[in-house]
Write a protein that binds this DNA or RNA. Structure first.
Lengths: 136, 136
DNA sequence: CTGGATCCTATACGATACTG
DNA sequence: CAGTATCGTATAGGATCCAG
């Protein structure tokens, strides 16, 4: 894998720069892995959407989480927020090039899961079946 | 992106099969994105390790979380757990081929973050600076 | 040494209500 | 329409103690 994350990097006197990268990677991964970010990004992948449209597209998300997710995404420069001074208000969210590229990067992982879901499911099944019995 | 996750898939009568994939993807992504899984996988990438060795390698992790993470990884068939009936007990954890391949899939994402961390950090900075002031 | 059981805190998230 | 504030619940995760 050639990646030396080691939480112990910091202790070994590795450049803080590198440690920061590690934390950022984990941070981004955690964000992508959360319950709504990915859905939101993919919803925006096909084009800009308004708050309400997103709320429907990413069905199941609460206003609170949508707002929060959007805010985090915007903060990281993954999406843009454009408010039109009209009445009633209109706000459009759109993926930035950066956001699109993240989406593509994620696709690799998605592809992996798709390709190995059978394995994973099978392992889980075996594990769950053996677990309760296997005492050693 | 060409991925139609849509939480609304289920409502539209999309095959449950596909919906299951979506949930599995999210599940795996969430696992990879959690605080310790990635560190643990990368720690094991260079070879099998015992519990205590892992505990040191992934410095900062608690026994509880290490055990929990290892268990989840084992359940998904990403790592193997080999217990030697000795005294004192010795248990070795090793990445399976599946685990290694996941690590590689993740590398793409890691590469993306590395390549774009400057952008992200800059955006965050701008956002945080503008946020408190910008009232619109 | 391995790692589960227990307790506690911080956070994620949902539901609801309220503001511009 | 577009959000924010508040509240309540569920879970993540750390510290510690205990058992095989």
């Amino acid at each position: 894998m050639a990646i030396s994350w080691g939480a112990d990097l910091a202790q070994r006197g590795i450049a803080p720069d590198c440690v920061q990268t590690i934390e950022l990677v984990r941070d981004v991964l955690a964000r992508v892995g959360d319950k709504w970010t990915l859905l939101t990004i993919t919803a925006l992948a096909s084009g800009p959407l308004r708050f309400t449209a997103l709320h429907q597209q990413v069905a199941g998300i609460s206003q609170r989480m949508l707002g929060q997710t959007l805010r985090a995404l915007t903060r990281d420069g993954l999406v843009t927020r454009t408010a039109y001074p009209e009445m009633p208000p209109r706000v459009e969210y759109a993926l930035t090039p950066l956001g699109h590229s993240l989406g593509q990067a994620v696709e690799g992982l998605v592809g992996w899961v798709r390709g190995h879901q059978g394995d994973i499911l099978r392992h889980r099944h075996d594990f769950d079946r053996a677990g309760p019995d296997a005492s050693g």
